[in-house]
Design a protein around this nucleic acid. Structure first.
Length: 946
RNA sequence: GCCCCGGUGGCGGAACGGCAGACGCUUCGGACUUAAAAUCCGAUGCCCGCAAGGGCGUGCGGGUUCGAUUCCCGCCCGGGGCACCA
């Protein structure tokens, strides 16, 4: 080893820390320097320590940041800890250690590891989500949510006080479902047609009613919702944390039960969250995942009147009493369905309600009650998984009731079936078997009529089967409306518009948009999370605590064990629970916030981490935001990235931040898999080493017995598989610089790639070679000759090409090809007896972002006293890139036959003549007819002969 | 089932209309060494040939083009996401 990487790396790590080499400047000190905010998804400091995936992400951003600093940017590159969460709490329960203790210990280990890799973070800006000075502001943001509502007229969040004002002034009225609308009178509408009758005015409400209305509008609200309750863990779990009805951690049974929970009204932002994706430079696949998750569908709500029982089977008195039906027997009932294809309304041949639909009891005549009930019981016993597994085999039962199609007065039978979900749309559908696969399957099974109303454009009318004849399959595409009266002959898009306007005029339907996105369940029954800054009165009504009481610290308790009931651990903190205000006694909220809370806004705290007056100073926020590049794993594609965008938009609406979106450009680094594993495909499979395997044709086989096939696979790194690579080992054996180079050299940042320890040595050889070229080799007493001479022309050209290429590659995050270019230049330098000082310095500067320790050491040995961290990046001179001679390939009929060297300024005819005479090309041309002579400037020559 | 992404030597990968395989690893040969490691130099897609040279090659089949790994159409395989969302 020509150089001692351990000593060199330690020396410069200490230097950087002592000199705060990577401090980001506040706007006032920054002068005219452009700003760059480069962000890593901050790690959860687990007990396992840093893994190679963290290192890949952080090396990539570190290289970019070091480069940007050399380009004169004021760079913000911070790090922190997402430290609340279940693992620390589980560990605390098991070992009876306070989670704070393990968290602190893990953070110290992570910090040590990160510093041992030489990442240039601004350590003065470190944040920790479990620090009360941090979660004070998480709680503060929660209060902003609690004290705001989404104004449907302005389509943005506003302080709840604004709503109260507008209601008091009767500008807004309340619909029976609790939603807020502009007062039709204020709009200049006729109060009769404006339907003021069914809306309520603030002044008519009792105070208690008014409070309920207001609470029902808050962005943070309480609701009784069915949750995944896990008694074994003593907490609710998200859907993602439940597998086959058991908890992912521990495998405890999970039950669904309704519980009072805190919810955040993310659904109010669904439309903006979809639309604003267009502003972002994110991977398309990731945007697509967010779009799918939000699941926006545009269509119409259509009202179908249930046929009065007098015309059908009487709903008898006993039936109505048992089911709690308070309507008069002849009162009209309406089923509202949602459809994205209102143009197929004429093709509806039956209707389906979700089994849980509240109208089911009210429409079902006594004669059918028993079958309906037994079907519902059967459904209730099935898990969600079973329900999903039977996609093709539809089940359902007839309710005995009918409804009237508003467009043609047809009487449609009403079914209940589990393929219709209560949780989406209105929980009811009109079924159009001719144009929906699910309806088609159901209609086939229950022998229901199929009526075609859309003709594929391009298909002749005569080619269509008759409306009620046997149809092979549903046609779900767009086409031309047929058998549809008023919309006949219209293409699908126009037919939709036309039918919606007719429905709206008749009052039997309206344009409607639905989303799959549900409100965010925001509370957990855990100890190790942010306490809510909320107190509850005896009735369970929530009140915020004053800002002056923040942070509301977690109480000290020594028993973190689940209570075995939905009562969270904080309920054991007797003293802490009691809260008194104005002589009234309240109880503190004992749920805590989920782990996502702290990570929803940490990028803002980095900007101003020590501010105790505000969560971020507005001037600094405007300077640094938005984040220019955000790098992290794809596992956060929907949850963290959706939640953070939502919080950011609320903060934007309330005037606390200046940008619509937090993260302009985002890159997902690919997963690093474990080393390739080989096993035979015989029974039973046997693990073999790489050396025993060779490739024969398509397959890998055993060298010793080529009849035995071998399979090569790489797996995700995991403790159980024993293929985890510990960065500490690699740093100890090869050094941080080599490790960084290796991780970047493996392949494109975004690609998934397998780890291969064998390959690391290539990067170690590269750095040793650099050292030998620029310093020498103590073992062989070789001293490098660096002298202030001019750079020889060929290597000068290559140097300028390298400067250009490395610069472009870093900006495009193509670190693997940038490193290849540096290796090439170093290989050339190896051949030189004397190296020009200018070349040595430029090379060192270019190497610095990738291998900063060795670069700093070389820089110092080249006679510099100050760190190169802010030294200007070398510039390439375009004039130096120009070749004096061109080497051109000569093709005949597209096949390479020879190469020629011509002066760069030679004219086309000279080049073509020279090429035709080239010894490799000539025999292929002679005696043939020249059909075409092609010269692609500076690229190649191609002769077409025949 | 639907939607994305990918398939290039023994391996990781490069080129993304213009010399396929940059660069690294591996393997082989050579130098240094008593020897080994380390290091350095050379070779390393496959086939035919002593060689010069020639042929074949970017998952498969077609197409566009003077020219296709690259663009278009149809398949096959692998990875990821969604999954009765009306």
């Amino acid at each position: 080893m020509p150089y001692n990487f351990t000593a060199v790396e330690k020396k410069w790590q200490q230097y950087w820390l002592a000199n705060k080499s990577f401090r980001a400047l506040d706007p006032a000190e920054a002068g005219g320097a452009p700003k760059s905010y480069v962000l890593d998804m901050f790690p959860y400091p687990s007990g396992e320590g840093l893994h190679v995936g963290h290192c890949e992400q952080q090396t990539a951003t570190d290289i970019l940041c070091r480069y940007l600093r050399m380009k004169g940017h004021n760079v913000l590159h911070p790090i922190g800890w997402d430290a609340f969460g279940l693992p620390a709490e589980q560990y605390a329960i098991k070992t009876n250690t306070h989670p704070r203790v393990t968290t602190e210990r893990n953070i110290a280990n992570f910090r040590r590891q990160i510093q041992s890799l030489g990442f240039g973070y601004d350590w003065d800006r470190e944040v920790n989500t479990t620090d009360p000075n941090y979660y004070k502001w998480t709680q503060w943001i929660f209060l902003q949510l609690f004290n705001s509502y989404f104004d449907p007229i302005q389509e943005r969040a506003m302080p709840i006080g604004h709503l109260i004002n507008e209601l008091q002034n009767e500008n807004y009225v309340i619909a029976p479902d609790g939603s807020i609308h502009i007062n039709p009178v204020q709009e200049g509408l006729d109060p009769i047609t404006g339907d003021l009758r069914v809306e309520r005015i603030w002044t008519e409400l009792a105070p208690e009613e008014g409070r309920e209305i207001i609470d029902g509008q808050r962005l943070a609200y309480q609701a009784e919702v069915p949750v995944n309750w896990c008694p074994g863990l003593g907490t609710v779990l998200s859907n993602e944390e439940v597998i086959d009805g058991k908890s992912e951690v521990g495998g405890f049974p999970v039950e669904r039960r309704p519980m009072r929970q805190w919810m955040l009204r993310i659904t109010a932002y669904a439309d903006r969250l979809v639309n604003d994706l267009d502003l972002l430079q994110w991977p398309d696949s990731l945007k697509e995942m967010q779009r799918n998750w939000i699941g926006k569908s545009v269509g119409a709500d259509v009202d179908f009147e249930v046929v009065p029982p007098g015309d059908d089977v009487k709903r008898v008195e006993a039936n109505r009493r048992d089911t709690g039906d308070t309507t008069e027997p002849d009162e009209e009932l309406t089923i509202t369905v949602f459809t994205t294809r209102p143009d197929t309304l004429y093709g509806a041949t039956y209707m389906v309600l979700a089994p849980e639909h509240p109208l089911v009891d009210r429409i079902t005549p006594t004669s059918h009650r028993e079958t309906i009930e037994s079907y519902r019981t059967m459904i209730a016993g099935k898990s969600d998984r079973d329900r999903m597994a039977e996609t093709k085999d539809k089940s359902g039962v007839f309710t005995g009731a009918h409804a009237i199609n508003p467009v043609n007065d047809q009487k449609l039978p009403i079914y209940i079936a589990d393929y219709v979900l209560m949780g989406y749309g209105t929980g009811a559908i009109m079924a159009v078997p001719a144009h929906d696969e699910r309806d088609f399957d159901f209609a086939k099974k229950f022998n229901l009529p199929i009526r075609q109303v859309v003709r594929p454009s391009g298909m002749a009318v005569s080619a269509m089967q008759g409306p009620t004849e046997e149809v092979e399959a549903a046609f779900v595409g767009e086409g031309i409306a047929i058998n549809s009266d008023v919309i006949n002959d219209l293409p699908t898009a126009e037919a939709k518009e036309r039918i919606i306007s007719i429905l709206e005029r008749e009052g039997t339907g309206r344009r409607s948009v639905k989303y799959k996105l549900r409100d965010w369940l925001f509370s957990r029954q855990r100890y190790w999370g942010e306490p809510f800054p909320i107190v509850l009165d005896e009735a369970g009504n929530a009140y915020d605590i004053p800002e002056s009481e923040l942070p509301l610290k977690l109480p000290e308790i020594d028993d973190f064990k689940p209570t075995g009931t939905p009562e969270p651990p904080l309920s054991k903190a007797r003293e802490w629970l009691r809260y008194e205000r104005d002589g009234k006694v309240f109880t503190r909220e004992t749920n805590t916030m989920p782990q996502w809370a702290g990570s929803c806004w940490y990028y803002l705290r980095y900007i101003d981490p020590h501010n105790d007056q505000r969560f971020v100073d507005p001037e600094k926020e405007q300077y640094w935001m938005p984040v220019d590049l955000y790098v992290g794993g794809v596992e956060h594609a929907v949850l963290h990235l959706l939640y953070a965008r939502f919080w950011h938009k609320v903060l934007f609406d309330l005037g606390h931040v200046s940008t619509l979106e937090p993260f302009m450009r985002l890159v997902n680094q690919g997963l690093i898999l474990g080393e390739m594993e080989y096993h035979t495909v015989e029974d039973p499979p046997r693990k073999v080493s790489e050396d025993e395997v060779e490739k024969r044709g398509e397959n890998y086989v055993l060298k010793s017995d080529p009849t035995v096939k071998v399979k090569a696979e790489s797996f995700k790194m995991s403790k159980s598989r024993g293929n985890v690579v510990n960065p500490d080992d690699i740093v100890r054996d090869y050094g941080a610089d080599t490790f960084r180079l290796y991780e970047m050299y493996m392949g494109p940042l975004e690609a998934q790639k397998p780890w291969n320890t064998r390959d690391i040595v290539g990067m170690a050889r590269f750095l040793n070679g650099v050292w030998r070229n620029l310093v020498g080799d103590e073992e062989t007493n070789k001293v490098a000759k660096i002298e202030p001479i001019a750079i020889p022309e060929t290597i000068d050209r290559q140097m300028h090409r390298t400067i250009k290429k490395v610069e472009e590659d870093i900006a495009g995050l193509r670190f693997n090809t940038a490193i290849a270019e540096l290796i090439k230049l170093n290989n050339e330098m190896t051949k030189l007896a004397v190296i020009s000082r200018e070349l040595a310095e430029n090379f060192t500067l270019m190497l610095a972002p990738f291998a900063p320790h060795i670069a700093e050491e070389l820089w110092e040995r080249l006679g510099h006293t100050k760190s190169l961290a802010r030294r200007p990046w070398p510039t390439h001179e375009p004039a130096k890139l120009l070749e004096t001679t061109l080497e051109l390939p000569v093709q005949v009929n597209g096949k390479l036959r020879d190469k020629i060297a011509v002066p760069a300024d030679a004219d086309e005819e000279t080049i073509l003549t020279t090429a035709a005479a080239a010894p490799g090309a000539k025999p292929w041309i002679e005696g043939k007819t020249m059909r075409k002579r092609l010269y692609v400037p500076k690229k190649l020559v191609n002769f077409v002969v025949g």
